[in-house]
């Protein structure tokens, strides 16, 4: 019914990396959990930055990630394409384009309605999500794509744990990005102003910060983080146009688990969730593990029922 739109590729194409290698011993399981957790952490920080500055939950965060992955593939070329750009250039180009796209979409879509309620804005980001997915679907179709690891070679053994090289790339570059983010937020004028918008928007206006512009900056920064996560993820997974929504949901779990307040919490939540997911799925019987994403997502509901004060507190105080 409703045309072929309902017939879609399964959203489970994107699977944690450890599935490919089989369920190994605990150290490997933990390591792959951390690797996945880095991706969740980047996406969760992206959610956090946008939410803290604008109060909007960016439903399209997973799709910005997908866009980063797809554009990296496009520029670096699938395996063996002779016309590809150098990897570093490809990643940079992909990230820059998605960042600009994030800012542009905020200006075109969110900005005109920024005084509306949060639900209205969330629905708008669902629209953005569909546009991004559709935009990726038209050139790529429902096919899946992969990219070679950033550096080739056998898995490295570190204190007896075998780690694929791309995993190290993911963990290392996540650390670097988080470091840069911290530096930017605490040492630069724009970073401080962005934090000022989070901490106290009224005070920010009073010192002359044009808070509206920082909405655009926040969306662009959120898109940047997501795109970067997509770029470093694509060598270990297959990119599909519909990989976004599961990642959005997981980033959201990570964000909530981390307390939904600080970037440190979001990173901890992301890595914690990645590890939890790896352990739960790695050590469940196949009949449970077959349900894949459904298992960790159940945790979301548990997390929220337990932690619902985390987000609602400020609202409860200002209400009435």
């Amino acid at each position: 019914m409703c045309g072929a739109a309902l017939v879609r590729a399964s959203m489970m194409d994107w699977m944690p990396t450890f599935f490919a290698t089989g369920i190994g011993q605990l150290p490997e399981t933990l390591a792959s959990g951390i690797v996945n957790g880095c991706i969740y952490a980047l996406a969760a920080v992206s959610l956090l930055v946008v939410y803290n500055v604008t109060g909007v939950i960016n439903f399209a965060v997973g799709d910005f990630l997908m866009a980063g992955a797809m554009l990296t593939l496009l520029f670096a070329g699938p395996n063996g394409d002779p016309h590809r750009l150098p990897l570093a250039v490809a990643v940079l180009l992909a990230v820059v384009i998605v960042t600009a796209l994030g800012g542009l979409l905020e200006l075109l879509v969110i900005h005109p309605r920024r005084r509306q309620g949060t639900i209205f804005l969330l629905i708008l980001t669902i629209g953005i999500s569909s546009v991004l997915e559709g935009g990726a679907l038209i050139p790529t179709g429902s096919l899946t794509y992969g990219l070679r690891p950033f550096t080739s070679g056998p898995a490295l053994s570190i204190v007896g744990v075998l780690l694929p090289r791309q995993d190290l790339w993911i963990v290392g570059s996540t650390l670097i990005v988080m470091g840069l983010l911290w530096y930017g937020a605490t040492r630069t004028r724009i970073g401080k102003a962005l934090r000022a918008c989070e901490v106290n928007p009224t005070a920010a206006r009073l010192v002359g910060i044009r808070v509206d512009r920082y909405w655009t900056i926040a969306f662009a920064l959120g898109a940047l983080l997501a795109a970067f996560a997509g770029a470093i993820l694509v060598p270990v997974t297959y990119a599909t146009y519909d990989m976004g929504i599961p990642i959005t949901l997981k980033a959201f779990v990570a964000w909530i688990l981390g307390g939904a307040e600080s970037p440190v919490g979001a990173v901890a939540g992301g890595i914690g969730f990645g590890v939890l997911e790896a352990v739960v799925l790695g050590y469940s019987p196949a009949s449970v593990a077959n349900y894949g994403d459904a298992v960790p997502l159940l945790l979301l509901i548990v997390a929220l029922v337990i932690r619902r004060r985390g987000l609602t507190r400020q609202m409860a105080v200002t209400r009435v």
Binding site: G3, A4, A5, V109, I123, L124, I126, G127, I128, S129, S130, V131, L132, E133, G134, G135, L137, I138, G141, Y241
Partner: peptide, 13 residues
Amino acid sequence: SYFTTIGFGVVLI
């Protein structure tokens, strides 16, 4: 069939 997703998004927005 590739049109529908982007079409939805654009119309929604």
